[in-house]
């Protein structure tokens, strides 16, 4: 799906650097005013949405199965920390690696088709992961894996201290964000965009399009896994919700609302949606309806998303 064009400006990089600095400072200062667990959850979902955006925004592939990577990594990290007794950094690494591994298999299958077929295939494959998690003994079925222990990261950082945990999650989020930024602005990222704009032409220029797509898919699924594994430690819980298809729908919604193919859009979208879920939880099933309405409004009238519209008003890429 091609992102709506925004006029290119030389000052875009500077603007993006400034916005990034503001975001980093704001997130570092925010726990003083806002409940830190909420912020950490929002950052995990923001990273998840950024990882998803890497595929939809820059390769034009709509994955409707990203919950599989997010949820599976969450289970693996929780299991590694609780049952195997691994330290947090290795638990997160294990979760990320598991997501990347599944991503490699799913990616190899799904990139054989494009467009809506790609979306349906990723959805179906992720449903397979959901049923696996429902039946496999290590996931704890309906209960999930509860009370995931928070150990010492690298042997020195005690994650039971909320401030330390917050700093670690902030570092993971900003690190993941910068990594994605670097990827989409590298020559590799330029080729991805070329594939998005005109795949036959990219092929005729000699690029092995499938390999680029697969690498992008594995990167995206690994980063979604990193987000899921971190989330398992933050809320100390891995459950079926994380791997259900409605989670895949949520990450699509976050990215669409923030702005497909924008750098900061997924972050904004994730914060808005998580805030809605957090502060409007008493609405119950009205929340689902509200999310549906946001989908419809975004698609019909607001396809650039929040950040995309802001960027258009400012004449800059955000």
């Amino acid at each position: 799906m091609a992102a709506p064009p925004v006029t290119r400006s030389d000052t875009s990089f500077r603007t993006q650097a400034i916005v990034f600095a503001i975001m980093a400072v704001a997130l570092a200062a925010a726990p003083a005013a806002i409940y830190p667990v909420f912020l950490m959850k929002a950052m995990c979902f923001a990273l998840f949405a950024c990882a998803f955006n890497l595929l939809i925004g820059y390769v034009g592939l709509l994955s409707f199965g990203h919950a599989a990577f997010f949820g599976m990594a969450s289970y693996v990290a929780a299991h590694a920390a609780k049952v195997w007794g691994l330290p947090p950094e290795l638990a997160i690494l294990a979760g990320t690696a598991a997501a990347g591994g599944i991503g490699a298999v799913f990616g190899a299958i799904a990139i054989r088709r494009q467009g809506i077929y790609f979306a349906m295939i990723t959805l179906a494959l992720s449903q397979m992961v959901y049923f696996f998690c429902l039946q496999a003994p290590f996931t704890g079925g309906e209960d999930g894996i509860q009370a995931v222990p928070l150990g010492n990261m690298f042997g020195v950082l005690d994650l039971k201290d909320t401030t330390t945990l917050y700093a670690v999650v902030l570092a993971i989020f900003l690190g993941g964000f910068l990594f994605i930024y670097r990827v989409i602005h590298s020559p590799f990222g330029q080729v991805l965009k070329a594939i998005r704009e005109n795949e036959p032409r990219a092929i005729s220029l000699g690029y092995s399009v499938d390999r680029y797509k697969l690498i992008a898919f594995v990167l995206s699924s690994s980063l979604a896994g990193l987000a899921g594994a971190t989330k398992a430690l933050v809320v100390q819980l891995a459950s079926l919700t994380d791997v259900h298809w409605s989670m895949s729908g949520e990450v699509v919604l976050m990215t669409l609302l923030g702005g497909l193919g924008t750098v900061f859009g997924p972050v904004v979208g994730a914060v808005v949606i998580i805030a809605m879920q957090n502060y409007l939880a008493q609405l119950g099933s009205w929340l689902t309806i509200a999310q549906g309405v946001i989908f419809v409004v975004c698609v019909l009238a607001f396809r650039r998303g929040i950040v995309g519209e802001l960027g258009r008003l400012m004449g800059k890429r955000l």
Binding site: V252, T288, I289, Q291, I294, F295, V296, V299, L300
Partner: peptide, 12 residues
């Protein structure tokens, strides 16, 4: 995406 949103609304 639009029909997904409609599905959420109808089911909700």
């Amino acid at each position: 995406l639009l029909t997904f949103g409609i599905a959420l609304i109808v089911e909700g």
